[in-house]
Design a protein around this nucleic acid. Sequence first.
DNA 1: CTAATTTGTGGAACGGGTACCATGACAAGT
DNA 2: ACTTGTCATGGTACCCGTTCCACAAATTAG
Lengths: 311, 311
Amino acid sequence: MTNIRDIARLSGYSVSTVSRCINDSGYVSEEARNRIQSIIDKLDYVPNDVARDLSRGKTYNVGVVLPHTLHPYFTHVLQGIMKTAFSSGYHVVVLQSKYDADLEIKYLEQLRRKSYDALIFTSRGIPMKELLKYQKYGSIVCCENPGEFNIAAAYALRKETFIEAFEWIKQQRYKKVGILLSRDNQFSATSKVTLECFKKVFGRNARIVDTNVTTYRDGYESISRLFEKNERPDFIFANGDDVAVGARQYYLDHALKVPSMMGQENQLSGRITHLPTIDHQFEIVGQTALKLAISNIIKQIPIKSYLIRER
Amino acid sequence: MTNIRDIARLSGYSVSTVSRCINDSGYVSEEARNRIQSIIDKLDYVPNDVARDLSRGKTYNVGVVLPHTLHPYFTHVLQGIMKTAFSSGYHVVVLQSKYDADLEIKYLEQLRRKSYDALIFTSRGIPMKELLKYQKYGSIVCCENPGEFNIAAAYALRKETFIEAFEWIKQQRYKKVGILLSRDNQFSATSKVTLECFKKVFGRNARIVDTNVTTYRDGYESISRLFEKNERPDFIFANGDDVAVGARQYYLDHALKVPSMMGQENQLSGRITHLPTIDHQFEIVGQTALKLAISNIIKQIPIKSYLIRER
DNA sequence: CTAATTTGTGGAACGGGTACCATGACAAGT
DNA sequence: ACTTGTCATGGTACCCGTTCCACAAATTAG
């Protein structure tokens, strides 16, 4: 491989001048530029990015931790991250976590070893405190409300919209709402907020909760379980349109009256079935997260989500 | 930042010994190991990955070129790539191409500059010939049948399944098939194969073709255009379930009889609407592509897709 | 009891840029 | 005439590991 010293030698100029020439950082005469460029062209030379990264102490890599890519939340956040990373000259390294804390630690260690300039957690299994420890090694951004923790965050502002949605449901005189959550509210901040908002609007009762429901199939099976327990909600509030539509399918398959429903994430399945939904603006969350990641500013930015009553 | 020379100095051993100790590559006495490890622990030292990459001449980064992340083809291929990359210790860098040849060149140049060990093209805008030129800088894998070109490839074997699907449609006595394609067959190998297979089964006529149809909305609008042109297919063959369902919605919204349809990609929308489909096994395509990328073997591996008649 | 290995260790080149600092030439301002 | 500023260029330390080579000591083999 030919390197910058070869170019310097063959062009008769110094390494410094060649470097300035390559990077267009001024202080290179017309003559030198021509001479150097001709040698570069002749040898088909390109600088080595890894060497450059080492020397500059910066990689322009941002690691994005996500459990998988098959859920619209993640693809939309990722899409937003990619968009902004692209226009800022950053590289996006996707890191599969499978909700596994050990893997998350592994990625934090890679940040420490300078593999990335920053790390974005679209989801997280380890405690916040653990994240804070690694902030000294690079900028860390999470995609949830960090509460009291001093960490950069871009997250969907769910609370207001949840309240709005539940008020709307209440107003239509539904009495017993089935709530399908993706993860246990002990682990998931989102699930916790959902239930809190429900309580605020409906009081503490009037709800049937099922957890670990994330896919169409899960929605279907969840309703089947409810029936076994003789639970009959008159409204289903799901954590995704796909989930709601899975639930709906159970009723259809068993020739039962389909209750009213609301989904989330504004997915295609919900559009087909004319389901009310909540759009959490995840692409904007992603864009914002990336901006924070490369700015090194520790700031929390909530993104407003909105209710779609009809479609 | 503390580096390996600091550890050497403070432990009283040489840099070489420290390096061997860190990498567990033997020839380190029990005593040396303890002494060195204690200094490492005390200084909280970790080696710098960038320096290591430079020295080893390998980054363990694989670039994955994809137009965007919002289409299930890409998310599934990406999912497969991530899965296998993860278990092989490689990093996945996602590179947004937007079907733009200039961007693809940019990524090839990054390969040349050693930013990645390999590059996977899940889609491609530039000519194959261009790709071949860059093979000397690293392993390049594409996700389509490369024909005569000597390049590594992992791709869905569509032909057989298309023939099977069209035979099935023909057998049901449909006469005029509307075919919705994602990109013009001049640019897309997939579109080309689709039409060729159609011709083989139905002869050259009996088809209405529309291109640049990739989303639910596109499917809807495509049918609207057909109606303007007074085209009335009795069967719709779409390049995705989502597209087919968009088409279906047009008929429903205008109180028209919905013709029979078939989608592709085995998407949720098709399951809800009980649409026959073709599953192209894209996750396996992704897994295979990554294996090729890190093996440096130039080989073409077709992946068998399959028809789902009922669901 | 030699000869041939194996183990432990250090030196230093190497991978390939970047950037600070010094030096000299020349032009413009006072 | 003297100071000051800008341009052009080179020298070299620095970023931080890896690995080849040499050498000595300790084993093992014959």
